[in-house]
């Protein structure tokens, strides 16, 4: 039961407390590049999720057989193999989306979030924990991508997942789907996350002070 709780913790930390985008600020290159629409964010998130999960399982299973001197190269080979599988599968099954994401699918190989999880977690933990961690981090990255893509698409095009929201009279805020819009949106979201974090810290301090006064 205690172990169950532990795996759950590992899963939850990726969603909020150690969210790869909003807290660790990792993997920003694909994040900023492809999130000009919610569907692109979703596709990129799912592709990264699959690569992260597959690589975590493999690295965790093989960790005893990989000498530490060559571990980074081995991780990269494992990640690159999964990325190639995703790349070809997407090209075969969803060619339109594949064209839209372009070079950013192969570039998942050098997403520092994935290599980071291999080095910091999967290569040091059991299979079970690694799967929980990959699920949490993958899901955290996924919802960050969809949130950013969704916000930019709503403001910059007036649509969400291609569905028009405001009717024909809406004048889209074009800058939001251009690169600066990515930075602005991400900045606002980071601000929000930090504000919540700060509020929590202040609240804790207040409680501690009150307890001290009593």
């Amino acid at each position: 039961m205690a172990k169950e709780q532990h795996a759950y913790e590992e899963f939850m930390k990726g969603l909020w407390r150690e969210n790869p985008v909003f807290v660790q600020v990792l993997g920003l290159c694909p994040l900023l590049a492809v999130t000009n629409s919610a569907i692109n964010g979703l596709a990129m998130g799912l592709a990264s999720f699959f690569v992260l999960l597959g690589s975590s399982i493999l690295v965790s299973l093989l960790k005893k057989h990989i000498p530490k001197q060559v571990r980074i190269s081995c991780f990269i080979i494992i990640i690159a193999t999964f990325v190639t599988v995703v790349d070809y599968s997407l090209a075969a099954m969803l060619p339109v989306l594949h064209k839209e994401l372009g070079a950013f699918i192969p570039l998942i190989v050098c997403n520092c979030l994935i290599l980071g999880r291999m080095e910091a977690f999967a290569s040091r933990n059991t299979l079970r924990m690694s799967i929980a961690d990959a699920f949490g981090m993958g899901a955290g990255f996924l919802y960050a991508l969809v949130a950013l893509g969704g916000a930019r698409e709503i403001l910059g095009v007036g649509e969400f997942f291609g569905i028009s929201l405001f009717g024909p009279n809406f004048d889209p805020w074009v800058i939001m789907i251009l690169p600066p819009g990515g930075f602005i949106t991400l900045g606002v979201m980071l601000l929000f996350f930090n504000w919540i974090e700060q509020r929590k810290i202040n609240l804790d301090k207040q409680i501690a002070a009150e307890e001290g006064a009593n």
Partner: peptide
């Protein structure tokens, strides 16, 4: 040996999916 095996397995998978 480790790197060679990793490369070989990876190569087989990549060619198969291709």
């Amino acid at each position: 040996g480790t790197l060679a095996v990793a490369g070989l397995v990876s190569g087989v998978i990549i060619v198969a999916i291709y």
